[in-house]
Computed example of a mutant assay.
Amino acid sequence: MFLPLHDGVPLKHMKTPLATRSLIAACTIIYLLTFHGPLGADAVVGGLGFIPSVLFGTELLPDGSPFVPVELTLATNIFLHGSLFHLIGNMLFFWVFGDNVEDAMGHLRFILFFLLCGMAASLAHAFITAEPHRPLIGASGGVSGVVAAYLILYPRVKIWGLFLKGIPLHLPAYWTIGFWFVLQLVAAFMGGDESVGWFAHLGGFIVGAILIPFMRRRYDPVLARVQAQELQAPR
């Protein structure tokens, strides 16, 4: 297990990561509506969750579900979470890593990046899962793409995190995120918790790594040197 806590990387291009905070707020509000709203959790998950067998036409839902065209559930499922722990875990990763990735892209491109990674993660899950009738929900795939982007942008930044059974360590991103990625690989191919979309995590991570060179701001070597010097300065 790995939970990131803090990285301390200052923002360079914006004062406030509006997109990151807005997406966290949207996920939180939708979680509250899912479990405390008028429809009930089962109806919301059936209406907005992503079910691979429905996308592929091998299964039909009752009339009225999904609430949107089935192709859109590739995106709507990203904003649903099945438990408070599920929500907090995803949003913690998003809070620590999202602001700096947004800073490297800009607000709108960051939202598009997050959605593309999340949708790609949904498709990766759809083609690999052994249980295509089970709904996929959660921001994990999109968050995994953000984590991959952060690793490429800031590989040597030291991150505070909790490892294994809560051991606090301060390690470079390539170690912390690398450890997290290995956990995803092991769980995906060695039979991890079947309720978790491990291949969605891997799919989002791979697509995030592919997209970041094209969606980041134009590379500025002078700014890059300044950032490197600031990040290496004693704290």
Rank of each mutant, 00 (worst) to 15 (best):
D7Q: 14
L11Q: 11
L11N: 10
L11K: 09
L11I: 07
K12A: 13
K12E: 13
H13V: 02
K15W: 07
T16L: 09
T16S: 08
T16I: 15
T16G: 01
P17G: 03
P17N: 07
R21Q: 08
L23M: 13
L23D: 05
A25R: 01
A26T: 11
A26V: 11
C27W: 01
C27I: 05
C27N: 08
I29W: 02
I30D: 00
I30K: 01
Y31I: 00
Y31K: 01
L33P: 00
L33M: 04
T34W: 02
F35N: 00
G37Q: 01
A41Q: 04
A41T: 01
G49I: 06
P52H: 02
S53I: 01
S53Y: 04
E59D: 03
L60H: 11
D63C: 01
G64M: 05
P66M: 10
V68G: 02
V68E: 10
P69V: 08
V70E: 12
L72C: 13
T73K: 11
T76V: 12
I78E: 11
F79W: 10
H81V: 03
H81A: 15
L87T: 04
I88V: 15
G89D: 04
G89T: 12
N90K: 04
N90H: 02
D99L: 01
N100H: 03
E102R: 01
E102M: 03
A104N: 05
M105A: 07
G106C: 04
R109E: 09
F110A: 10
F113D: 12
F114R: 09
L115F: 12
C117A: 14
G118K: 09
G118F: 08
G118W: 13
M119I: 14
A120C: 14
A121K: 10
S122E: 12
A124K: 01
A124F: 14
H125D: 12
T129I: 03
P132A: 01
R134N: 03
P135L: 07
S140M: 09
G141S: 10
V146Q: 09
V146Y: 09
A149I: 08
L151P: 00
L153E: 05
Y154C: 08
P155Y: 10
V157F: 03
I159N: 12
I159Q: 13
W160M: 15
G161A: 15
F163H: 15
L164Q: 15
K165V: 08
H170A: 02
L171A: 10
L171K: 09
L171C: 03
Y174E: 04
W175A: 02
T176K: 02
I177C: 00
F179Y: 09
W180D: 00
W180P: 00
L183K: 12
L185G: 06
V186G: 05
A188H: 09
F189L: 15
F189N: 13
S195E: 12
G197W: 10
W198A: 06
H201G: 07
L202W: 07
L202I: 14
G204Y: 14
V207H: 06
G208W: 05
A209G: 15
I210F: 11
I210G: 04
L211I: 06
L211P: 02
P213R: 08
R216S: 12
R217A: 07
Y219R: 15
P221Q: 08
Q227V: 13
Q227R: 15
A228K: 15
E230Q: 13
Q232A: 13
Q232S: 12
R235P: 00
